[in-house]
Amino acid sequence: MSADAYKLRLDRPLDREVARLFRSQVNRARRALKKPDDDSVHTARKALKRARAVLRLVRGALAQDDFDRLDDAVRQLGRRLGPVRDAAVADSLVDGLAEEKALKPSVIRALRAELDARHAAAWIDLTADDGIEAIRTELADLRLDRDALAGIDALALHGGFAWTYRRGGERLSRAVERRRAHDLHAWRRQVKHLGYQLRVLTPIWPLVLGPTARAFDRLAEALGDDHDLDELARIAAASGLGKNEARAVARLARKRREALQSAIWPLGARCYAESPGAFAGRVTLYLAAALAEAHGAPIHPLDGVALPSPPNRLFAPVPTAA
């Protein structure tokens, strides 16, 4: 998939673009699973997260039942792929620790034996009863009805964008208060949603939103590394490793998580420095201005706020002078 495929095309009707973005990611997930392996599962899972982020961007324009049905369907499909992806990530993490010689060879061998068994079991569970083909069939049936989005404008995206930002801020506050791995992971999910939404919207003002999207990507990556280290320590504690080996893994994970979190907290504070209304409001106005520019429509100030005229997805061209 090219980088531009997951970006809003400003010269197209907004309802068609949103439907295209959702469907393209669902199709990408389905194609990836045609030849399933660790990489294709990762591709499919990431595509489903992107589809879900698009869906959440327009949640305010959809009937609640329609949104809940689609959101739950995409989430559940992603969860079914999760154990295989998690096992592959843990394998990769241990490979990296081995290259760094961060743990004794005996600990690495014990971890690899445990993780290989978990990885194999995850694949058995996923492929049982033709499970992958069942997922592909369900993906083929997923539809975001374009008619339900007919007539949406820039303002229709404001609610979903504000909701995503607000949820991330709430999860940040909870993570700061509790300092538990579970809470950081819950925060990461919201950071990922917003990061994907920013990628979609980057074309409306790349100079501003490009760096913002990269900041959220960086935050999500750091939170992901924190989660992976915590999971590795948990697996080591629950496995057949000896106490000394498990403690060595826990010490390493704790030390690296502390280093990661020293960067996570200030970056998170910067990313969530605005109120949800302010953040979503200015991005919505960027979108309105970009759509108006792309369709040759004028921008008129309204109560001190620039809104497109007419304020819908299809802008009438500016009449040429006689």
Rank of each mutant, 00 (worst) to 15 (best):
S2Y: 08
R9E: 08
R9V: 04
P13H: 01
L14D: 05
A19F: 14
R30P: 12
R30I: 07
A32L: 07
K34C: 15
P36I: 01
D39K: 13
D39S: 13
S40K: 10
S40N: 03
T43V: 15
R45L: 11
R45A: 05
K46P: 09
A47C: 09
K49D: 15
R50V: 03
R50Q: 11
A51V: 09
R52Y: 13
R56V: 04
L57N: 02
L57T: 00
G60D: 04
L62K: 02
A63T: 06
Q64T: 13
R69D: 11
D71H: 11
D71A: 09
D72N: 15
A73R: 15
L81H: 08
P83F: 02
P83M: 00
R85N: 14
A87P: 14
S92H: 08
V94H: 05
D95C: 11
G96S: 05
L97R: 06
A98K: 02
A102Q: 06
K104C: 00
K104D: 07
P105F: 08
P105V: 00
R109Y: 00
R109M: 06
L111Q: 03
R112L: 02
A113T: 08
L115K: 03
D125G: 00
A128F: 09
I132R: 03
A134K: 14
R136E: 04
E138G: 06
A140D: 11
D141M: 07
L142Q: 04
R143K: 13
L144C: 10
D145G: 10
R146S: 10
R146A: 12
L149D: 06
L149F: 15
L157C: 07
G159D: 09
F161N: 03
R166E: 15
R167Y: 15
G169H: 01
L172H: 01
L172E: 06
R178P: 05
R178T: 06
H182D: 12
H182S: 07
W187A: 07
R188C: 06
V191H: 03
H193M: 08
H193V: 10
L194T: 02
G195K: 00
G195M: 07
Y196M: 07
L198N: 04
V200M: 10
L201W: 11
T202V: 05
P206A: 01
V208N: 04
L209A: 05
G210F: 08
A213M: 12
R214V: 05
L219F: 13
L223W: 01
L223M: 02
L223C: 03
D230T: 03
A233N: 03
I235E: 10
A236Y: 00
G240E: 14
G242Q: 09
K243H: 07
N244C: 04
A246F: 08
A246N: 08
R247T: 03
V249D: 01
L252D: 05
A253Y: 09
E258D: 11
E258Q: 04
Q261W: 10
I264E: 02
W265H: 01
A269G: 12
Y272T: 02
S275P: 15
P276L: 01
P276Q: 04
F279T: 07
G281W: 14
R282S: 13
T284Y: 00
Y286D: 10
Y286N: 04
L287I: 06
A288C: 13
L291E: 06
E293S: 12
I299Q: 05
I299D: 04
P301F: 13
L302F: 12
L302W: 10
L307A: 10
L307C: 13
P308K: 01
P311E: 05
N312G: 14
F315I: 05
T320D: 00
